[in-house]
Design a protein around this nucleic acid. Sequence first.
DNA 1: AAATAATATTTCATAATATGGAATCACAAT
DNA 2: ATTGTGATTCCATATTATGAAATATTATTT
Lengths: 251, 251
Amino acid sequence: MRETVVPQGAQAALRAIRLLKLFTSEVPELHLAELADMSGLNKTTTHRLLQALLSEELLDRNPANSAYRLGPGMMALGVQALSGNQLRVRARPLLKKLAEETGETATLEVPVDDTMLILDEVTSKHLLGASGNVGTRWPIHATSTGKALIAFEQNGPDRLRPPLLPLTSRTIIEHAALQQQLSDIRRRGFAETVDELEDGFSGVGAVVRGSMGEVLGALSICGPSSRLSDSRRAQLGAALCTAATRLQPRY
Amino acid sequence: MRETVVPQGAQAALRAIRLLKLFTSEVPELHLAELADMSGLNKTTTHRLLQALLSEELLDRNPANSAYRLGPGMMALGVQALSGNQLRVRARPLLKKLAEETGETATLEVPVDDTMLILDEVTSKHLLGASGNVGTRWPIHATSTGKALIAFEQNGPDRLRPPLLPLTSRTIIEHAALQQQLSDIRRRGFAETVDELEDGFSGVGAVVRGSMGEVLGALSICGPSSRLSDSRRAQLGAALCTAATRLQPRY
DNA sequence: AAATAATATTTCATAATATGGAATCACAAT
DNA sequence: ATTGTGATTCCATATTATGAAATATTATTT
């Protein structure tokens, strides 16, 4: 569970971690000056932390342009984190079943900071080439999984980072409107997005819990808004809640 | 490229990173006392660093037993590192071709500390269920890819961590014997292992270079020792070097 | 080729932080 | 209730991290 209190006594470690987080799929390579600027750290401090990350191979340098990028040590840890995630393994059959039964795309996602990371995705037959989103991250406030997560996770709303980015004209970025939605989500048991992430794209999302009831991540079913009417989304939401319940370990 | 000099002025960051590296596929969950013992750090220091890693979601806690484990932040970074790795994408068609033409298993691997991490693997038709090694790590001295890597990478031998672990009776763990092999490998252009990682399992490995000639990782073809005779291995080695050369970007 | 600009790396005094022993808290087992 | 085990917090100070400035390296311009 995400801690909202910043720990004391490990500032250097936190700074190093935050440098790592500056590398994204969109911006995979960065130079020292860029990193110092983006992190707000003094150039020397930045350089020194980068050297530490290099020495442990969490970062690597592209010899062609000397830019820093995530390295093999990061790959190893990432793969380990993924393979240690039991949820992903157990969810796969359910995702397939959901996709087949609904004819839409089903995903499993986990929260990372103020985003949702797609851990697994099974595409429907309708959208060819719609696959390939595994590993991508999307703003938490604009996804059905994200909204479900915020609604049900303890301190969930603390993940939001105002000002919220409007991705479409329908994206909900007002605090009050979102809070209202969270109440609805809690009552209903699942969340919805309609043209909020992308025009013409809608989805429903429901949280998945662990054995102690803690929120682990979320499942979604999504597709073109033209196919996801109000009544259809209600149907899908119910199916999703059933699936999510089946995923929860029992004791 | 791995730095052999330990950076000054980032001790706390390094300590945090080394805590992360204690989590493996074999031991995915650990408690505070175990981590303190394994890292040699004072328990308080360990605890504080763990709190930092938790707050950034690189670690997570299993509520069922309070054990620490790698978290979603780690998954996100790992996925980003993998998707940013152009080599993996470009190597895939070649791996398929190699596996088809040889009837054996082909892998792409990168070095992480004193191990080789399998980034991609295409299995032959002979061994059913031999797939699934992606993300696994193997001792660098006992794999053909690892030996090729050590032979050709600048400061490659610095990766070795004596005492070397004997995995089979044939594993080469003597420094002098290994150095002799490195000379042979450099002359030949590829490396071989015969029953060194596992009894009845052999392979050949050749390094892959980047645009500036730097060593990025290695390709291997491997299978049952009964099929990989001396002459066969020479053949495979030659094919591998050709493939590796094709993978290198040109300018 | 030389000069200039941009970027990266190193130095060093000291302010700030990280450290760890000890105390306290929380939980499980008896 | 007591005991044992593991986790968390407190606080004085030793140690480290910090950052301004200097230096080195590389790229770009003239």
